[in-house]
């Protein structure tokens, strides 16, 4: 039951974008079209899960035994960067259709702070392997949910009249704020 609660709360209550402020650049940058946002969301889910698995294993079996925790940041980012590169090459060679739909988003994800953020968060919370995996899945799904919802709303802005200085990013941010307010209501569901 606890794990289920963790899963739900990571998607809705502690949503990675709307409550923890991670991954804001792609959140605003890739939410102009729904099709782009779906691709980006799927790629983030995929990479977050892979990155969390790899960094968890490295932290547990390499860094802890040798007392290298202080190098966490540099090791994690290099692992994520090379992982993304490998995934890109693997997909290109083995699963071309998947590469076609996710490929362009993969290089962007190296510098997405949601991926590194989740990898560091599960270490700080000292989750075990299964919990970490579950948290990574939930965080990715939460990101995709928020991204697709915002993209759906922003597509409508094209046909709305608004002051010129509000168009684009400013109204996107305010919309994100209102969505974040709405997501705060889920707090009552868990508590």
């Amino acid at each position: 039951m606890d794990t289920f609660l963790l899963f739900i709360s990571a998607i809705f209550v502690n949503n990675i974008v709307l409550a923890q402020y991670l991954g804001n650049c792609p959140y605003l940058g890739c939410s102009k079209e729904k099709s782009v946002s779906i691709g980006m969301g799927a790629a983030v889910i995929f990479v977050t899960i892979m990155a969390t698995i790899f960094t968890w294993v490295i932290q547990k079996f390499v860094m802890l035994p040798f007392g290298l925790q202080y190098l966490q940041t540099i090791v994690f980012i290099l692992v994520i960067a090379s992982l993304v590169q490998f995934v890109e090459m693997f997909l290109k060679k083995m699963v071309p259709p998947l590469y076609k739909s996710l490929g362009i988003f993969l290089p962007l994800i190296t510098t997405n702070c949601a991926v590194l953020g989740v990898a560091i968060l599960v270490q700080r919370q000292e989750y075990d392997f299964m919990t970490s995996l579950l948290y990574a899945i939930a965080a990715g799904v939460g990101f995709m949910l928020a991204l697709v919802l915002l993209a759906a709303i922003r597509e409508r802005f094209v046909i709305t009249r608004m002051p010129k200085s509000m168009q684009g990013t400013p109204i996107g941010l305010i919309m994100a704020g209102i969505m974040s307010l709405a997501f705060m209501a889920f707090k009552g569901m868990i508590a």
Binding site: L18, A19, Y21, P170, I171, L173, I174, G177, I178
Partner: peptide, 12 residues
Amino acid sequence: APGAFVCLGLIL
């Protein structure tokens, strides 16, 4: 959190 988004949006 909502205040952060709205504030930044208004500043922009």
